[in-house]
Design a binder for these strands. Structure first.
Length: 125
DNA sequence: ATTCTGACA
DNA sequence: TGTCAGAA
């Protein structure tokens, strides 16, 4: 299943088609890149090229944002995912268990909403 | 015609 | 985030 990963990783979409696929504006797509949460490739002429994975990521970012997460929080999530990938190169699929994601998201949502007065042990687990 | 960067009435 | 300018 390495062939599939390769295809999902190949940058074949222009920002124009990504806009249609994600319903995001070019401004937003470029901004997210600025914030380091998506890293499209560039052509020799400096045009951004996105892969299927990038599109999925953009769609995912849209969800996180609507769930109340801010850019820094989202960046941290992908950074942690990258750290685990580096730690377990073999396990290509489940880098983060559903529980890991829930725990992280719940914490981030509280951070983003400035509701940090609660005891961390209250929603631990 | 499309995309890029930088800037802000 | 929108939008406009000037360049590629």
């Amino acid at each position: 299943m390495k062939e599939k990963e390769l295809r999902r990783s190949m940058a074949v979409f222009t920002i124009g088609t990504v806009m249609k696929l994600t319903n995001l504006t070019a401004r937003q797509i470029r901004y997210y890149e600025e914030q380091q949460i998506v890293q499209p490739q560039r052509t020799e002429t400096n045009r951004r090229m996105y892969s299927l994975s990038d599109v999925d990521r953009l769609l995912e970012i849209k969800d996180y944002l609507s769930e109340g997460l801010n850019i820094p929080a989202i960046r941290r999530i992908y950074d942690e995912e990258k750290q685990k990938t580096a730690k377990f190169p073999e396990e290509k699929e489940h880098h983060l268990t559903d529980e890991d994601v829930r725990r992280i998201l719940y914490k981030e949502i509280l951070d983003a909403s400035g509701f940090n007065s609660l005891d961390k042990n209250t929603w631990k687990r």
